[in-house]
Every structure is written in structure tokens, then in C-alpha cells.
Nucleic acid binder design. Structure first.
Length: 232
DNA sequence: GCCCAGGGGGCTC
DNA sequence: GAGCCCCATGGG
């Protein structure tokens, strides 16, 4: 691995961490809650997700068996606040049926394999794409895979490391080839990038002057995401 | 009224 | 593999 890039990545992490502190990412009580959250948070803010999870607990359905038991209309109703709720109800149901039927409802048994096999298996399920699969692998199965997302693309494009059209795989490869394999680092690094993406490196009106990365950012704004707006 | 929020499936070429 | 449309709530 290139030592200079590795150093730069650690410096980026240090700069954010010193200003922001630990993120306490993925506030979930159980592994199953991580899975449910990973599916429900697709293109919706976490605030909406917590409400849906509360609803599931209130219904006594926050488990593999619980969700298997629920009717689709009832499940849809409980998670309606998370947008695209009909699709997400199907995603949750199919995931739970799969684990129930193939792994006796035992998530630990499901996770008990090397992370690339687990990834392939997750990707074969309806509604589990790359980011959702990797989030489950890192935050629930606790295996060292680096999670990237649209925030990662935006922040590292503006920092000057990525082209705006870089693929998920290439982003992930970039981090995994230049960082030591470390679950805690991967966990906190992703969390910190997302914090910066949400608070400072926003799409239309980035708050560069307050951003912890301002001093090292080349501010590459190749047409703020939709190709229309101009650089600030 | 507008924009945006921690994607993914399905289709086309 | 890239590009497009669809899904369809809630808060600022």
C-alpha cells in the first residue's frame, strides 16, 4: 500500500475525530436491530427509523419470529414513517423468513462464515444492496469490511481523491487497500465521514469554514451532484 | 412550494 | 457497467 495515502487517510480521520469526538454510531441494542435499521434507513433519515423501531418493539415484533408472524399490511403500517414502506416491509419479511428457514432463526449462525461469503449471501436477498450488506457485516456481524456511501463519495470527491462517478466497489477498495484491517477503525471512520457529510459537506451549501477538513480540502465541486449548481 | 434524508430493484443500451 | 425511472414519509 502507498504509505503517503495511508498517512493522509489517518490524518483525515484524526482531524475529524479531534473536532467531533466519538460518534457513537449505530445506536442499536442488538444485532437484529442493526439489520432492521440497515434496511429501514435506506434513503431516509435515522430519526424516522427510530420511530419505526419503537413501533416494532411496542408491537412485540422486534425479532425474527415477530416479523415473520406479522401480516404485511400491519408491518407496512408500523414502518410507514420510513418511506418506501411497502418495499421495506417486503425486504424485512424476506430477510426474516430466510434466516428462520435456513438458520433456525439464529443470526449468529447466519453470520458464522467468512465475510465475503456472508456478503454474497446477503446480496442475494431482496432489498440488500452493497451498502446495506456491508453495514450488516461491519456493525452486526462485526467483521472488518469498510462501509462507504454517497457521503463518502461526496466528501472524498471534494477532498480531491475520487471522481464523482466512482463506483461503490472502487471506493471501498480505496479504503481497504490503504487502511489496516481494524473493525473499530472501520466502524469509527465511516461514522466520522458521514458526520462530516451530514453537518458540513452538504450538497448545495457546504459549510467549509466550519469543516474540520477545511485546511486540507481542495474543494473540488464538479457541479454539485446534479450538475447544475455552481461552486460556492 | 421547495429541497433533502445513512438505497435498491428493474429495466434498457 | 452506466443511466434512467420507480418507490412515496417527514422535517426544515
Amino acid at each position: 500500500m502507498e504509505q503517503s495515502i495511508k498517512k493522509a487517510l489517518l490524518e483525515i480521520f484524526r482531524l475529524i475525530y479531534e473536532k467531533e469526538g466519538p460518534r457513537h454510531w449505530w445506536p442499536a441494542q442488538t444485532k437484529f436491530e442493526v439489520v432492521v435499521g440497515a434496511i429501514l434507513t435506506q434513503f431516509v433519515s435515522w430519526k424516522n427509523v427510530t420511530e419505526a423501531i419503537r413501533n416494532l418493539y411496542s408491537e412485540g415484533a422486534m425479532s425474527i419470529e415477530g416479523i415473520c408472524r406479522l401480516s404485511q399490511p400491519r408491518l407496512q403500517e408500523l414502518i410507514r414513517c420510513t418511506r418506501f414502506y411497502k418495499q421495506k416491509a417486503r425486504k424485512l419479511k424476506e430477510f426474516c423468513l430466510y434466516v428462520r428457514d435456513r438458520y433456525r432463526g439464529d443470526l449468529l449462525l447466519f453470520f458464522d462464515k467468512d465475510m465475503y461469503s456472508l456478503r454474497e449471501e446477503l446480496l442475494s436477498l431482496y432489498g440488500i444492496g452493497e451498502e446495506t450488506a456491508d453495514s450488516i457485516i461491519l456493525y452486526a456481524a462485526e467483521k472488518p469490511i469498510f462501509v462507504v456511501d454517497s457521503y463518502t463519495r461526496r466528501v472524498f470527491t471534494r477532498l480531491g481523491y475520487f471522481h464523482p462517478q466512482i463506483s461503490y466497489r472502487d471506493m471501498q477498495r480505496f479504503f481497504m487497500e490503504n487502511l489496516d484491517e481494524d473493525i473499530r477503525l472501520f466502524n469509527e471512520y465511516h461514522a466520522q465521514i458521514d458526520g462530516v457529510g451530514a453537518r458540513y459537506c452538504t450538497n448545495r451549501k457546504p459549510r467549509c469554514s466550519q469543516c474540520p477538513l477545511d485546511s486540507i480540502c481542495v474543494k473540488s465541486f464538479p457541479g454539485i451532484s446534479d450538475g447544475k449548481a455552481s461552486a460556492p
